[in-house]
Nucleic acid binder design. Structure first.
Lengths: 232, 232
DNA sequence: CGCGGCTTTGATGTTCATCAAGTAAAGTGG
DNA sequence: CCACTTTACTTGATGAACATCAAAGCCGCG
């Protein structure tokens, strides 16, 4: 969309260049730039479905997304909720040719898409880039695994406290924020029932730990929340 | 240990060459061969502890290992139980310089260790190899994530049925096998209490689904087991 | 303004962890 | 090799944690 400087492509000055593409030459960057798409998605939109063919390698440039798996009965398991600048193409991109999980936008988002074949070519040509990509992909997977370990060893109250901390600390960097997900989605994320997520919110509210106004959450007593999160 | 053919290094004929190293030249393979170690571990031995410095990239050549995280109170969370030829260095190898999880041998095992710096050099020099490595690392991570999703949406009986299927189908390829782990470790793997793992075994036994003689398990009615695994 | 989805709360019962007590098995040191 | 210790396994009883169900209020959207 940008064309202020017609001799330079937008990717050259992209903030994300530092992320993975620092080892690429200007020539390579321009080559990517000619082909890649920045695709905007509105809140709620599906970015891709599990089973879709992988054509693009995707990373999140703006917004917030959830990665999830649908069960046959319609239930969802939410695998991760992430901010830029995560690679939102999960690992299978290189493995199988089909997405294993679905991806949708929790807030208006912008996804940068690069043809997967182009990425592969660059890895083959440029080992520095390959090494950097391995590191970044590893971090993404590791984050999911580590978070899952955190969640699975906690009890109900501990899990709710953990996600509230997560949204506050890692996602919004604020004690007040609008939850980007429904109560049900929180339940799907931390493997508990919707009713009990709500019940726990109510208890936290009663105990003066948080305040809720619809989807707006205010964390009043962060210390208490941390205690519950650690104990649970 | 082998030196039957003194002009050829063992790695050239290693079964695992196909795995990741097919794209390497004979020269590269020999270079690896000069430096790498095959380290044997007895059942029960620790291969490395979380927090240990990463020097080697490791993959499992023989045996069976578990990857796990220790809690402050001594509890363990088991992340994966895998056979050859998995990469048992988890992703953090490239990320942090320290292992995030511990690794120990469930059966007598042989681990092939290659200096991590050497792997990095090879990725830089040889893009084909880098691409192959990305694919393999991705598969390893993806397996952990997928298995976790399988486990977490099941109830108690479903989880036990799932691990029995897993050991039978993926690990031992047999309906009769010696469990390589204690009841307690199974509990740590599927996030339930030891007592309930045992209780569920007893119920399966009572219902004619399995037989147990200490750690030896015989699956009698695989169909019923699958039904329980799917329903749960 | 009425419908459907999200939220909330209470009541109920199931599932599961915990505790306790006992047995079997596997190390350990003399 | 045996007494001793420790660890793994097993079962029952109990209560806590949690899911499920149901009913009602709320909110946004057509």
């Amino acid at each position: 969309m940008e064309s202020s400087d017609k001799n330079k492509c937008a990717c050259l000055s992209c903030d994300l260049r530092d992320l993975a593409f620092s080892s690429l030459t200007e020539g390579d960057i321009e080559k990517i730039c000619k082909e890649n798409h920045e695709v905007p998605y509105a809140r709620g939109e599906i970015i891709h479905n599990e089973g879709d063919k992988v054509t693009y390698f995707k990373y999140l440039k703006q917004g917030l997304v959830k990665m999830f798996k649908k069960a046959s009965n319609g239930d969802e398991q939410i695998i991760s909720i992430t901010r830029p600048f995560e690679f939102v193409s999960n690992s299978c991109v290189f493995t199988e040719g089909y997405y294993r999980y679905s991806l949708s936008a929790l807030e208006d988002s912008v996804v940068c898409c690069i043809r997967i074949e182009q990425i592969k070519e660059m890895v083959e040509k440029n080992g520095q880039f390959g090494l950097r990509l391995i590191t970044l992909l590893s971090q993404t997977s590791e984050k999911i695994i580590a978070q899952d370990l955190e969640i699975r060893h906690r009890n109900l109250a501990g899990r709710v406290a953990y996600v509230l901390e997560y949204f506050s600390r890692d996602i919004y960097h604020s004690k007040v924020f609008d939850l980007p997900v429904s109560r049900r989605e929180i339940a799907d994320f931390i493997s508990m029932s919707t009713a009990n997520v709500i019940r726990t919110f109510s208890e936290f509210k009663r105990d003066g730990i948080i305040n809720t106004y619809g989807r707006t959450i205010e964390i009043i007593d962060m210390e208490k929340l941390e205690v519950i999160s650690k104990r649970g």
